[in-house]
Design a protein around this nucleic acid. Structure first.
Lengths: 348, 348
DNA sequence: AGTTTTGATGAAAACGTTTACGTTCCGCCG
DNA sequence: CGGCGGAACGTAAACGTTTTCATCAAAACT
């Protein structure tokens, strides 16, 4: 019973062949007779041999690992994203190195640099990442794809959620159902998603209700800020007939403000959010929202990345867009439950 | 402008010293004059030198990476767990390699084996993992800690959630509040958590209501199974006064079955779950449940693992237990909202 | 039968580090 | 003044692979 770990040499000795042949067999390179194959396989099994990945990486220059740099793992969004990435990575035999929980530019930079040499490619989602950041911290030879980023550069392909179209569709829906005045609760000012959703709100209002004044309240994506925004809206005279929050958590906060005031949703005031987080289905009334398939986002990112890694560098456009679906539940006052696909330009 | 990545040799040449000195400076090993230090530092900066981690791992045998093997990333539990692990790992300068989404024994075995050589330590959470599995797939020299596992062996320290005490406390609470008959919805039969929660239910009933017959319905942790169990319970005569589901998702499913039947919760029937998932707070009525700090679980696991990696092999007991808190909300019929710490034996 | 082609195999170089071991130099003590 | 110890630094071995190249036998041609 050997307690040391077996190396390729041990297998070679055990199988009475050279290390080259062992390597050939185990990597399926061919040029080996069936007999030696068998001998090597058995020897390897007998010794419980597992190739040392460090040595392999050193010589091949590949790690079979991809890295994911994320701002924080908190909440459903990131867990779903990682899950999507991991699922797709596993299917292609790749490992996943995650690095999250950094809340400053320096933190993010360190995370990206630490990936150097450990991964074959990188998926980056961070509001701190812009063109300059990448040029400074990203090794030139490391393929990377950006998520949810305003950077538009062929060297760094990006996948974005179609926030604009999603928001437009939802606002359009609210207006269609008969709510004349629609208020909007924004996300944090620096957030790219939040900006685009606001843009969509403005565009939809301009298109469908050009005569109505815009009604925009500041929020920061937290439930708490949604609650505050809700109270603010309640104080308005006349009260808006519908409220569209830039994300679901704020919509939920808003809902609690309305409930607290004794209002009936959607009877007295309609409400809608964005993201379709799990909770949306479970609050009362169930929240109408805009769904984005986060798992798909992760999957698309990985696929795009592996494409890059395999050398098809500039065949694809710099930026892709992932469509959203309006999910009509009870909170918006349209009585059927239905899913309408808004933007069919799904990436992948 | 060199397009190739710089190696230690390039730095040595640039600084006009030997590679050994470069290594010494960059690793802070001492035995170098201030002059050479400075020269090396500058050369390294000039060339944007970053040590190759594969080469380093090969010679040192350390990767500065720890691996997490999980069954699936779906749901809040795993996202919180990973977050806890990542947070603690980052604080100690360790990277995190995750491997999830495997649903068979073979899958799990492959995942564990693939970690060989890539990580310095392993955190494993999988219902497929038992003593034999570990002996077969885990390299003898790889430190590992188990999560939520029945294995009790000093070689594989484990951290478990105190499901038993948590379940006992909740059932005790339900009885205390005045619900004479408490039914229980089980989890999947193979699941360790589920088994322990059932054990807790039985123990609490035996202790507080020895005359009452046990009322156990099968479930599998899904919302759907909770719904079915709820309908089954509704058909019982007499109807139980309270229902304790082995996890929150089933409790939610159950809640919908009750609502559908027009029952008032907790007026007509009380309800409680286990896990304190995010949704628990948002359903109506808010769900009473047993909270376990999953982030702490991840953190404790990582701390225990680093302890192992640093050689303190057998100083700690084989199994630790992480306490739970009963969270009283509206669904159980006790009117105050309150958190009571049940088991103060927190690991860490 | 002689020559070429083919295919299997092994020897050895290479990857970029860390580190054990020499070497050199200098100051110090006896 | 000779030897000795220690600090600074360089040389080279080692880590475990993959891969190129040479070798060799056998099969395939002429």
């Amino acid at each position: 019973m050997t307690t040391k770990k077996a190396t390729i040499k041990d297998v070679a000795r055990e199988a009475k062949v050279s290390i080259a042949s062992v390597s050939r067999v185990l990597n399926g390179l061919g040029g080996v007779t069936a007999d030696t194959q068998e001998a090597v396989r058995q020897a390897a099994a007998r010794l419980h041999y597992v190739p040392d990945s460090a040595a392999r990486s050193l010589i091949t220059g590949r790690t079979h690992t991809i890295g994911a740099v994320l701002p924080d793992l908190y909440g459903e969004f990131f867990s779903e994203l990682i899950r999507g990435i991991d699922l797709a990575a596993r299917a292609r035999g790749l490992h996943l190195l995650v690095s999250s929980s950094h809340d400053g530019v320096e933190d993010a930079a360190a995370a990206v640099r630490a990936m150097r040499g450990r991964v074959d490619g990188l998926i980056v989602l961070s509001q701190f990442v812009d063109q300059a950041f990448l040029e400074k911290n990203l090794p030139a030879d490391l393929p990377a794809v950006l998520l949810d980023s305003p950077v538009d550069n062929p060297r760094y392909p990006a996948i974005n959620i179609d926030n604009d179209a999603g928001a437009q569709a939802m606002v359009g829906h609210l207006l269609d159902v008969g709510h004349a005045s629609v208020a909007f609760i924004t996300g944090p000012s620096g957030n790219f998603d939040a900006q685009q959703r606001e843009k969509g709100y403005r565009a939809a209002m301009a298109a469908h209700a050009p005569h109505m004044p815009l009604n925009i309240i500041a929020g920061d994506f937290t439930e708490e800020s949604g609650y505050r925004a809700g109270r603010e809206l309640l104080a308005q005279r006349p009260r808006p007939q519908a409220v569209f929050a830039a994300n679901d958590m704020m919509a939920v906060g808003c809902l609690y403000a309305f409930k607290e005031a004794g209002l009936d949703v959607p009877g007295d005031i309609a409400l809608a959010g964005f993201d379709d987080i799990l909770i949306a289905r479970y609050v009362t009334p169930a929240l109408s929202t805009v769904r984005v398939s986060i798992t798909d986002l992760g999957k698309s990112a990985l696929l795009l990345l592996t494409g890059l890694m395999e050398g098809k560098a500039h065949t694809s456009p710099a930026t892709r867009t992932l469509g959203c679906d309006v999910v009509v539940r009870d909170s918006c006052g349209a009585h059927q439950t239905d899913v309408a696909t808004i933007n069919p330009s799904r990436a992948g």
